[in-house]
Design a binder for these strands. Structure first.
Lengths: 219, 219
DNA sequence: TTCGCCGATTCTGTCTACAATCGGCCCGGA
DNA sequence: TCCGGGCCGATTGTAGACAGAATCGGCGAA
């Protein structure tokens, strides 16, 4: 477990490195939900001081990835289904905002990029390349956030994303889910390509409501 | 500046106390925007160790109240007008969600409470009691958040609130602003009292859009 | 056998001291 | 006079040690 991702492994990792490493370990599932994170162990495992580990843990607690109980340590936060739905409900508000802003700000070059993305997306789904499709989805979300130029919303969305990756992932491999999802994503892309903020917002809302519904059914 | 708010001044304040004290000092304006916060000074001023101050500063940085530049310390974050508007745009999405949920979940007792609140609110505005009105506004926001039972949205809103109090405050004492705002708040209350989620959402959106507009004019 | 009490252990919370880094200042040279 | 390099003070980042709280185990009594 030592030195998972050190740029220059000579001197101990900085706090930012530590935070990134632990965060990665959590979202990748290397640390199981509800697993206890003991400061001394992490300190030894990552070759950092306990103070650094401690700071990183505080940061992750604020990101909602771990829970800190006073005097009783930290544990990986388990996101329940209800919480995952709450997160999606919040994302509706924020991603609709971003999509509308993106549709306003999009340049010609970016329109061209989105056309390509739309093509690749449908292609991936048609050929059954679920992994590639998932990656393209992520790229789409990311690009829309970039284009929105809305630092506040983007910051919050990034935090929420880290919390819910596991549920998102589970959903992605439901049979038949990709086809539905791809159509909704194409609709979002079309709206942005048309520079139609209202349509972009509506398409995003439709998509996220569909995700919520799917999650509910999945239970 | 020493011992601003110590419960029991015997043993030094805990990290939570410190965080609260510094946060309060920032939102109250005791620390000016862009002011540099030097760990040693705070440590002496609050009678706490530098490590505690440091932890508190990290926490506040995650709350977006201060900026931390590596190796160059912390300074109070200045929220520009553009950022304040961004925050309000985000709040639209979240508070609409909360208002709708609140309208769903509200009990008979709470309906009665909201009727009283509606009455007090209009009374305060009619009698020109701006401070009391401001306090009631805050209470209204808080109650709606409580009723929404939406921990995720509430958590984010609380964080955003701390960042934008100064702008909110500046706006509150604009002449004529209170009357407009009171009508909008009453509309929100009516919708919740009627248990009409859609209306609650619409009224909340109207109100926040109006706030944005007012801020723009003021800016 | 089961319940409650008590001590040992483990882990977190806090503090003090040390090392690394940054910015400004002074001095020398063109 | 203006520019560049190196030194020095100030401030942050890191490490290790100590103290306090919570948990877990055994032990004794009902």
């Amino acid at each position: 477990m030592t030195d998972v991702l050190d740029g220059q492994a000579l001197k101990g990792p900085t706090v930012a490195d530590l935070t990134a490493a632990i965060r990665q370990a959590i979202v990748d599932g290397d640390f199981a939900p509800n697993q206890r994170l003991i400061e001394a162990d992490l300190s030894a495992g990552f070759g950092a001081s306990r103070a650094a580990v401690r700071t990183a843990l505080f940061e992750l607690a604020n990101d909602g990835l771990i829970d800190r109980l006073p005097n009783r340590g930290s544990r990986v936060r388990a996101i329940s289904l209800d919480e995952a739905i709450e997160i999606l409900e919040v994302r509706i508000g924020l991603e609709c905002l971003c999509a509308a802003k993106a549709a306003e700000h999009v340049t010609d070059a970016e329109v061209a990029e989105f056309r390509r993305l739309r093509h690749d997306l449908l292609e991936a789904v048609a050929s059954g390349d679920l992994l590639g499709y998932s990656r393209l989805n992520q790229l789409l979300d990311e690009r829309i956030r970039d284009l929105s130029r809305h630092a506040t919303a983007v910051g919050i969305l990034e935090r929420l994303h880290a919390q819910s990756v596991r549920h998102q992932f589970r959903l992605a491999f439901q049979p038949g889910r990709a086809a539905v999802s791809a159509g909704e994503h194409a609709a979002i892309l079309d709206a942005v390509i048309d520079r139609d903020p209202a349509a972009a917002e509506a398409a995003t809302r439709t998509h996220l409501l569909s995700v919520i519904e799917a999650l509910r059914l999945l239970g």
